[in-house]
Design a protein around this nucleic acid. Structure first.
Lengths: 343, 343
DNA sequence: ACAAATAACCAAAGCGCTTTGGAGATTTTC
DNA sequence: GAAAATCTCCAAAGCGCTTTGGTTATTTGT
């Protein structure tokens, strides 16, 4: 059933039917009611492509997932972030259009999407320090919003981020207060903006207490369980082994925990661990007494908010860019305790 | 730049330019070359909506993510599956359109998507035993493919599944051969088709050796780490505690392992564990010696293949439905060993 | 050398919607 | 009671593409 058929069926013009459905005032209440019920009965929904052609709006937001040939890794937070964003999209009637793209084709793809006009805006995830995507999108005049920040960008744009440096500074201080002096950092890849900022927070806290920054107990890598395991195992076997670990993801923290126990030590007693916790739905940390002491921030909530920011920008293109900095909660769990030999 | 502008720029008709770009033969090689370079130079890509309107094809595949209000859980395999499917879509020039939908709105949404014609087909994930989605889609005449099977469906449709019953039967036999007599099952929700089949395999293997099926050591629940932990902890404290665990997901297995170690036992010695392993990219089990003995099957590969099946179906609608049953590999890792007291 | 076939191009219709620019009919204003 | 304003509706253009049904040259067949 299309508009033409529906309007013939009703004995009205397409104009009137269209206006009735879209809530324009030039239609009597009686007619509108008739049109609406007829539409429902006949299961009519306007053809998206025709509507898009006519209005110049795609009613879709693009998410481009970078897929490097080197490490074909899917971000564990991807699903939850998408779920959050999807909630906002669904509420506003937008679809989410996903594309995979190899790292070096992203610019081409952005330009292509802009030319094809099949999305009204783009949501950028996982920005690197010197991320070029921000520049490209600004250049193309395509509305966009970033989950995280790209430090290299000079002009304003929409973003939402967790206060990563503050979170890791607080976590480090928490460990220092417990008497830990050798605190290891198991970070994400440090060309990523969030990881860079986290290291910053860690270093700030150490420096503030006059402690040296020791590259021997600092790692940066893609955040897998195995990475947590191997790097912790290695560091624990060093002569001057750390008594605490600051970890960038709960996935990695699971590996850290495995190495600790395999070494015959007890997490929360012999070794303390604080991890960042994105509140991944299949790995909740926070029920009852959390397993890990963590800097907690819901990535799903982030998706929800950021998607709304982007929708607002699309709806109202002249509004100034919006920034949103979320503070992570420091939640105490079972994985931290006083440094050994200090009761 | 649109077709009209491009054709004016070239001094050709829109017809000729369109045909040149789409590879029709009614165009001389010289003209075609001219058109193609001009298109590249001017960064021309046809407007998706206009093209779709004219061809009746959306060049997009729909994925509907059910989001129940009860348990707002995002499937951990979601990301990797999407990544696999996305590879096939990208290669064939299709976009992926995601929508979230609450359980009881799925039918409405399917009908709406069919009416709006903004997807050419739908990929169904996580079918339940009596999944209604298959019926609805068959009813709507919308091409679709299912990851898994819906046992209730009577007529043929496209699906790809892992041989779950065979996998769990083999895994159970493997444990039995090691001398284990008390084997616990930590399954997914058993109204889900895959979980039902896995239990079938487990029970078949036990029955074949004349062993009783004991509900005391069988659990079914949403597959979180916490679920693995609590159910294992409970079962280990039972009088006649199991010596082996058969687990439905590596996420759950991590929780199982936590409970085992917390009880002061050693996985692979005191207690054996076999888990199903979907080869999730951030939690690889298989490097060097796998942590867990596992029934292994790549969900990313599954996404890749199934997406291709759906594309084929869309391209060639009269072809008969395709079924594909993948066998899981039984990979031996560190988590299994002979039953205690049996060297 | 002439009809038939082929090559290379084009004008215009059509996909299903929104929106502009009216046109009657009814109500309000003075 | 005539002019103005307000309602309620409609015909037709336009969004950017594909495709049908030509037309005009150029080759081919005999």
């Amino acid at each position: 059933m299309n508009l033409k058929q529906l309007s013939e069926h009703l004995g009205l013009s397409q104009t009137t039917v269209s206006r009735a459905l879209n809530g324009y005032p030039e239609v009597s209440d009686a007619t509108r009611k008739k049109v609406l019920t007829a539409a429902r009965l006949n299961n009519y929904s306007p053809n998206t492509r025709a509507k898009g052609l006519a209005t110049g709006r795609a009613w879709a937001i693009g998410h481009i997932i970078p897929i490097s040939t080197k490490h074909e890794m899917v971000n564990p937070i991807f699903g939850d972030f998408i779920a959050g964003a999807g909630e906002s999209y669904a509420a506003a009637g937008f679809d989410m259009t996903l594309r995979l793209a190899e790292d070096d084709h992203i610019e081409t793809l952005y330009r292509e999407m802009a030319a094809k006009r099949n999305v009204d805006g783009i949501l950028v995830q996982g920005p690197a320090m010197d991320d070029e995507r921000v520049h490209i999108l600004q250049d193309l005049g395509m509305p966009f919003a970033v989950h995280g920040r790209a430090s290299s960008a000079t002009t304003a744009y929409n973003w939402l981020d967790v206060n990563n440096s503050r979170a890791f500074e607080r976590a480090t201080n928490f460990l220092l207060d417990l008497g830990h002096q050798r605190i290891a950092l198991i970070n994400g890849l440090e060309h990523m903006d969030f990881a860079y900022r986290r290291r910053g927070g860690y270093e700030t806290a150490l420096s503030a207490r006059g402690l040296a920054i020791d590259p021997q107990i600092m790692r940066a890598h893609e955040m897998t369980e195995r990475y947590g395991y191997t790097s912790t195992r290695d560091m624990l076997s060093q002569p001057n082994a750390p008594t605490a670990f600051l970890v960038s993801s709960i996935i990695v923290a699971i590996g850290v925990r495995r190495a600790i126990e395999e070494a015959g030590l007890k997490m929360g007693q012999d070794i303390s661990v604080i991890t960042h916790d994105d509140d991944i739905s299949y790995f909740r940390n926070g029920e009852e007494i959390p397993l890990f002491t963590a800097t907690h921030s819901s990535v799903r909530e982030a998706g929800r908010i950021l998607a709304q920011i982007l929708i607002d920008q699309i709806t109202n293109p002249t509004a100034p860019p919006v920034h949103r900095l979320l503070e992570a909660q420091l939640m105490v769990g079972q994985s931290t305790g006083p440094a050994p030999g200090r009761t």
